[in-house]
Design a protein around this nucleic acid. Structure first.
Lengths: 324, 324
DNA sequence: TTGTACGCGTTATCAT
DNA sequence: ATGATAACGCGTACAA
């Protein structure tokens, strides 16, 4: 049997109202009473029922996080910071992996609304714009812009693309590949691609663009993509990979086929996951921690009824290491 | 204004009971009514309030997951499977990173109890045994054994340690290092260490054991540990790393100091994270997916009042690839 | 086949 | 300084 406020009340010999007062530190209470109540709570191992509280307050202090896949290092890392910051502010986190499945994402959104979450951070989107604008709940999107009216947090993808490409050009690469996950699902990340094209066009270099299929983050698929890239273009001397995970696959492939990095091929990654540190990878670093913090900050501000910036674009940084 | 069962009732012109019946498919209902109610719900975009339901049913269909750090690939991967399986069974997941901080873990446990979660999966433990046995909620621990009375899911750490060490011996390594995160916090993982010692002792080989400090998963610390290991023991020709992340650091270090792998040094990792695939790493593969599934299965069985095995030790597999 | 009334655990309001 | 009571949104026994 779980102990409730009522049990405490009986034990101490006062009304439930009084217990509630002690719990919330409201109104006048004699010191002795306070003491006795707290002791009883301790003794009976009492925990206030947050469900009942939330029902009454119409506020659950839970926020939903919808991402494609928690096992992907980028999302793992950003989630870590989101959790940490949410916790500090007294919010719990409901974790939802969409796997980029439309049906699952939709169901999760309904589930979160039903669970009375106070807001949602969307790091995944597979549906039509209206499906999000109609959610009718504080919302922040991470690394993607769904509509003009939904605040998004991202880093400067275009500039990141510029930095990476310019570096490869400066290092005198003559045949450069841009590889990425599927570009349809994340229009912001696509700016890296746009910047790449902008930089290489008109210059005296060849270039190639390759992307994976729609479905998710399969490292096997990454591997195959990279393998084919080098098979079809053995003379590549520069690769801009739009994620560190992809870049690591490039390094692996180069070792396998005996291409020296950075001598024969130069490689730039993207993300700056702390994980990339398993190699001495040159990369474009996104401020992942800051992105997570701002996602929470802006979500909580909306929950508090405040206005927040609709667009947040944080600076990126070129981290030049051993692969260029 | 959020729409409730009452609004639907008024709109359709029946009592709330009837709506509730339609919602839960209980009792007799005329077809026409059913239809009209469903239409009204659709139209008003109604979502049943799970808070109220849970309060009444004394069941929230939420489970808490406490792990050290979601950004660590092993936990990211196991969490992915846990989420997926929980979702299939109609449960939501509350994500808690303990960061191996005693205070945070304690607070999260209280928070989860207060939130009326139906059960907890513990992948972290920093407190005394009594603190867990007194939780008084269905519990399953992941990869660690807190007490005889709390069911745990793990893989065969001892055998994994044997497999790895035997492989290195078979490959004729003469000076072998075992490196790991701190051994105090995870007694099950310590069995890898025990198996290692058991295998190397009495054989004609030198061996070294090194571990990181207590606090968490800092890749920088991994890196430093590995660097010192090789600096102090330049003649090492075999390394058994108790996680793939650690093994990847070894490979990185070997590249840096010009040690050929597997020619001069052979390396075996542990975990079999899909991530390890960024190198051609020989490793001991844990059945991560199965572990996640069983954690949920046994937790739900406890929630349903059924008995579950107190000890579950799943088989591991040697995955021999390019680093040995 | 449908409605009334109570209770889940808590807090806010109004008394005392 | 403390208590009685209604209300949050829903489900269920009992009644009709």
């Amino acid at each position: 049997m779980v102990v409730t406020i009522k049990d405490i009340a009986e034990k101490v010999g006062v009304s439930v109202t009084t217990i509630s007062r002690v719990l919330n530190n409201r109104g006048y209470l004699s010191d002795g009473l306070k003491q006795r109540v707290n002791e009883a709570m301790e003794e009976m191992n009492y925990q206030p029922n947050e469900l009942a509280r939330s029902l009454l307050r119409k506020k659950s202090n839970v926020i939903g996080l919808i991402i494609p896949d928690i096992s992907h290092p980028f999302f793992g890392e950003v989630t870590k910071h989101i959790e940490s910051y949410a916790y500090e502010q007294g919010y719990k986190l409901m974790l939802c992996n969409s796997l980029l499945h439309k049906k699952k994402e939709k169901e999760y959104i309904d589930l979160l609304r039903a669970s009375q979450v106070d807001g949602i951070i969307m790091g995944s989107h597979t549906m039509r714009v209206e499906d999000y604008t109609s959610i009718n709940l504080p919302l922040v999107t991470l690394d993607r812009q769904i509509s003009k009216s939904i605040p998004f947090i991202s880093s400067d993808n275009y500039h990141g693309g510029e930095l990476a490409t310019k570096l490869l050009l400066k290092k005198n690469c003559k045949k450069i590949a841009y590889i990425s996950g599927n570009l349809q699902l994340n229009l912001l990340a696509k700016q890296r691609h746009d910047a790449f094209l902008e930089q290489v066009r008109g210059k005296d270099v060849e270039f190639i663009v390759k992307q994976t299929d729609l479905n998710g983050f399969k490292y096997k698929e990454y591997e195959e993509l990279v393998r084919r890239l080098f098979q079809e273009n053995p003379d590549i001397d520069g690769v801009f990979a739009s994620s560190d995970m992809l870049a690591l696959q490039v390094l692996k492939n180069c070792r396998k086929i005996g291409k020296g990095v950075p001598d024969e091929v130069k490689v730039v990654g993207y993300d700056g996951i702390s994980f990339g540190n398993v190699e001495d990878l040159t990369t474009i670093e996104q401020p992942i921690k800051k992105m997570g913090e701002l996602a929470i900050t802006y979500l909580l501000q909306q929950i508090a009824g405040e206005q927040v910036p609709l667009a947040t674009i944080l600076p990126v940084k070129l981290l030049e290491k051993g692969t260029t």
